[in-house]
Nucleic acid binder design. Structure first.
Lengths: 191, 191
DNA sequence: ATGCTAAACGGAGAATGTCTCCGATTGCAA
DNA sequence: TTGCAATCGGAGACATTCTCCGTTTAGCAT
């Protein structure tokens, strides 16, 4: 065989990066407007790239969905930090739970689709660098330390219940309903 | 125009009925084994009928799924009657919630798919003759009357939270986790 | 600048799935 | 039996997913 070339580190090509962002942008509006089942080829076409390019950047539909919402998920994670800094433990937890419900509620179609695909909702969130799981774990830990929450509560269980609560978004007057349910979860979690 | 024929009431043909049942049977095992996304044509082939026959009996994938699980849903409804007859209100409610979680947990793939499609989980259950919604409404009403549950609790909200709880089925030791969560919901729902 | 090369592109097309249409078939009633 | 309406089945039109590979292009070295 011939001499092996030293693998030179190359900067990623700017067109690749630009395409990637175009795809993400188009996909985001398309997903929220028409649901998560739209044709990926149509997304590619709208983004002005070929199907091959789209599939090279995002091997699966899930990968694309996850990439689309990773930034939003990190915003949720940032809110956790903010709440933890400025609020009492149980208030921070409640506020974050409500924010979570509000956030997920506006993305119903997408979350449902992810549910179908990954079949394990916690995996869905852990896919995004554990951002969400870490957020709720931190909040719950603090609330346990302050004595507002029973010690044997599994934060991830709470997260799963929250996802169920997010389903209320499809009924009229859902914000009030969500608030009641979050309150039920908190009261039921007391020591 | 010619004389209008009197619309004679005819018994459904036996082959039609048999085909319908064959399809349901095949679909049930296929759905639970390979998820809700399997090719409907393959179901038709396995059932020994043409695609046209399948689509005539069940116009959409949802219709097929709903038909497949209608019998199981009615079994859940029957359990409600049984529990209400033999248990104290809050115990009946708890037992039924646990049964519900257990039931839904084994059908993860299907429920997730239905979620994606109908996008309103309560609609999913009301599709089956309101069996499920009536069951939980009855249980909650009784528990409110006996003073175990706060009066302003919306039964459907509780149902939605339960569906979220069902997601725990994907983690090890989920029965214990589900039990804890149901308990949290009940405690949080006290007056 | 210029040439080289790996990386990225894009779209044709194979594979798969959905759903319809309509000629053939068949059970039911008279 | 016979007529006919209900039912059947599968070919085929259409949509979608995803891959393959010839072409293009950005970055690096000279």
């Amino acid at each position: 065989m011939t001499a092996r070339k030293k693998p030179v580190e190359r900067r990623p090509r700017v067109d690749a990066q630009r395409n990637r962002e175009r795809i993400l942008e188009v996909a985001k509006t398309a997903f929220t407007r028409h649901g998560a089942d739209i044709s990926l080829d149509s997304v590619a076409k709208q983004a002005g790239v070929g199907a091959g390019t789209l599939y090279r950047h995002f091997a699966t539909r899930e990968a694309l969905l996850e990439a689309v919402y990773r930034t939003e998920l990190s915003r949720l994670a940032a809110a956790e930090k903010e709440f933890s800094r400025t609020m009492a433990p149980v208030d921070a937890l409640r506020a974050w739970m409500l924010l979570f419900v509000d956030y997920v509620a506006t993305k119903q179609l997408i979350v449902a689709a992810l549910n179908t695909m990954v079949c394990d909702t916690s995996k869905l969130f852990s896919a995004s660098g554990s951002l969400i799981t870490e957020a709720i774990e931190s909040l719950v830990r603090r609330a346990i330390a302050s004595g507002d929450i029973r010690a044997d509560l599994d934060p991830l269980d709470l997260l799963r219940a929250l996802i169920g609560v997010s389903n209320v978004a499809s009924v009229p007057d859902w914000p009030a309903s969500a608030r009641r349910l979050v309150q039920i979860l908190l009261v039921g979690s007391r020591p």
